[in-house]
Structure formats: structure tokens, C-alpha cells
Amino acid sequence: MAEINQGVRETVNSQATHAFTHTLSRAAISALTPIAAVLVALAFGAALLSLNGFNGSDVVTVMVFGSFQDMRSVGEILLKATPLILIGAGLCVAFRCSIWNIGAEGQLYVGAIAATLVGTSIDGLSVWVHAPLVMLAGALAGAAWAGIAGYLKVRFQASEIVTTIMLNYIALILTSYLVTGPMRDASAAYPQSARLVREAWTPRLVTDLRLHIGILVAVILAVGLYIFLRRSSRGFALRVVGLNPHAARYAGMNVARNVMIAICISGAMAGLAGAFEVAGVTRRLYQNISPGYGFEGIAVALLAGNNPLAAILSGGLFATLRSGSEVLQITSQVPQVLVLVIQGIVILSVVAFAKLRDVLRIVA
């Protein structure tokens, strides 16, 4: 009997050790692959600069560390990180449900349009009412715009990849039409809307910087979405639908409802990012209000491994690279085209290593 008990204990200990080792290896893979992706991208960027007659080390010394010169530089990084964190965290929810929302750029623009309408057409409210109302309008507009693609998917099985891409073009064309027509400021020389009333502006964190409270909202919402996915029954349902919709349906889960919830959450986060750009940065609507935050948010989500909490770090990283690209272009006289190529290399590296991470997780 003692020998049997000893054998059982050894078996249990062996299984526990194997489970711990398996968990540890998966955690190491999740932590190391994003770092490897960035390092490989920077190495290729350095080689590209060297081949074109520039100093390759500028990729690190200027593009990365050069972005942290003073508080103003750090503030600009956090300002750029705000929409990236919002969009990236929202896309993490959609991707977890296997909904490939490629329309965050269009949802950002629609959110910016709604925020501008609320910020310019209403007057007499206090900042504590008007500013949140602008944010709410942007989030609802983004969710509604994403909901179009979600409805087409659940009702007609239309690919959300195709529909969200098409909706991007519609949103951009709609923005151009509005700022050159119905919403154009007649006193302005360039296509733009009227200026938002001051009560609709997003309050700034530091008076002398452009950084506003949006960065705090972005971090709080990212943490909230992480808790939602990991600790709530609805978040569990979204993840199950993403893993196997047939099994989810067999278990009694409403697949269509969960798909709509996931894509609308991601759309709301993108629309909120657009509202913050209008109310916190530009104060009015322009034709090209986004430098591509919606598309870059996809890379943010992939680098984060579809983890909204990790999207805070990956959003900060991409904001650093974006700010560093501007510094690199100014201080090292690197052509803008070459800077854009380096940014593209970073995104390609992130996507490639994200796929490699999934393969390694399966093997581990």
C-alpha cells in the first residue's frame, strides 16, 4: 500500500511539474516574441539606413532614445499613444472573438464626425457635461459604424474583412464631403469644420503640454477590457465563440449576439479615439485627421497577443516609434519615404512574430 501511495504521489508531482513547465514556457514565448519582433525590425531598419548612406545606429540613438529628450517629447509620445491604446485594446476584443475588424480607421473618422457635430452644435453646457457628451457621441458612432459590418456578417455571412475595408473608404469620403460642404468653416482657407466650443474640449493633464486626460481614459478602459475578457461570463462567451463557434452554439451561446458585441466594442473604442483627436488635439475636424492610427492599431493588438492589458505597452511602443520617426527625419535628414519603410518593416516583423508565437504556443 505504501508503494502504491508513493507511486501516486510521484505521478501527481510529475504532472504538476509538467503543467508548471508548460505554463512557464508559454509565458516566456508570449513575453519574448514581441521583444524579438522589435529587435529584428530595428536591425533591418539600421541596415536599410546604412545601405542608403546614413548612420545605422540612428535607429536606436535617434529613433528610440531620441524621443525622450524632455517632458514635451514624452508628452507627445503619450498623446500619440492614446488613440493607439484605445484602438488596439478594442481590436483585442474583436480578434479574441475571431472577428477581423479592419475598419478601425473608418470608425475613428465616424467618431470624429459625431464628436464634431456635438461639439459645435450645442452651446451653454458646462465642461463636465459637454466634454463627456462629445466622447459618448464618438463612441456610439464608432460602435454603430462597426455594427453595420457585424450585422452583414451575422445576417448574410458577409466577410467582415471586406465590409470593414469598404466602410473605411466610405467614412473617409464622407469626412471629405462634410468638411468641404455642409460642415465647412466659411471663414477658413482650407477644408475644415468650425472650431469646437471650449466647453467641449478635452481637459489637459499639464497646462504647457498638449497631453490630455485621454491617456488616463485609454489605460483605464484597456484594464477594464482585460477584466471583461478574463473575469466576466460575457467575456468568456466571446472567447469561446472565437475558439469554436459551433461548440459555443452547441453549449447554448448566442453566437450572433456575441459577434455583434465584440465588433461594436472595438468600433466604440475606435470612435472614442476619433473623438479624443477632435476634442483633445485638433479642436476641429479635418480631411486627414488620422495619420493611420486605425491601421496601426491592428499591429498594436497583434503585438499585444490580443491582450488589452498588453496593448498599453505595445501602444506606447508604437507611439515611441512614430515620434522617433519624426525626430529621425528632422535631425538625421532621413527622407520621409525611408522612414515610412522602416515603420512598415516594424509592422511586418510584428505580424510575422505574432504568427510564430502562435505556432510556438501549440508546440509548447
Rank of each mutant, 00 (worst) to 15 (best):
S349D: 07
R204G: 07
R284H: 14
T202P: 00
L356N: 09
G235S: 11
G53Y: 10
G56I: 03
M269D: 01
Q343T: 13
V12S: 09
V197F: 09
S25Q: 10
A89I: 02
R357E: 15
T116D: 05
Q157F: 04
V64F: 10
A41M: 11
P34G: 08
I345N: 06
L229T: 04
A16S: 13
E326T: 12
T120P: 00
A364M: 03
A27K: 10
A137R: 00
V278L: 02
F318V: 01
G56V: 03
A104V: 01
M1I: 13
R257D: 11
L108V: 04
Y177C: 09
A104F: 08
I345P: 00
H212F: 07
G271I: 01
S30T: 15
D58M: 08
V255M: 05
A41W: 02
A27Q: 12
W201G: 01
F156K: 14
L49W: 08
C92A: 15
L196R: 05
G53F: 09
G242P: 01
G88I: 02
E10Y: 10
F54P: 00
G294V: 04
R234L: 13
I261G: 00
A194N: 12
R9S: 12
L317W: 07
G88S: 09
G119C: 06
A158P: 09
Y226P: 00
Y151K: 10
I261D: 01
A273F: 02
P203L: 07
L125V: 06
T23C: 05
A200L: 05
T175M: 08
L321C: 09
G106D: 02
S232P: 06
R230M: 14
C97E: 03
P182V: 13
R184M: 12
S25V: 13
V60T: 11
R322Y: 13
I77C: 07
G181C: 04
I220C: 14
G224K: 11
Q192L: 07
S67T: 10
A139M: 06
D358L: 12
A47N: 10
D185A: 09
T116E: 03
N55Q: 14
R230S: 10
V134F: 04
V40C: 11
F318S: 03
L340Q: 14
V241A: 11
Y169N: 13
P291M: 03
L24M: 14
R249T: 13
L303D: 03
M260T: 06
S25R: 08
L32M: 15
L238F: 10
R357I: 07
G53S: 09
A19V: 13
S314A: 15
P34N: 07
L338M: 15
H212T: 06
N168S: 08
A31T: 13
F228R: 10
A273D: 01
H212R: 05
A304Q: 03
L125K: 05
Q107H: 10
L196H: 04
T202Y: 08
G138M: 05
L321M: 13
S159D: 12
T21F: 03
A311E: 08
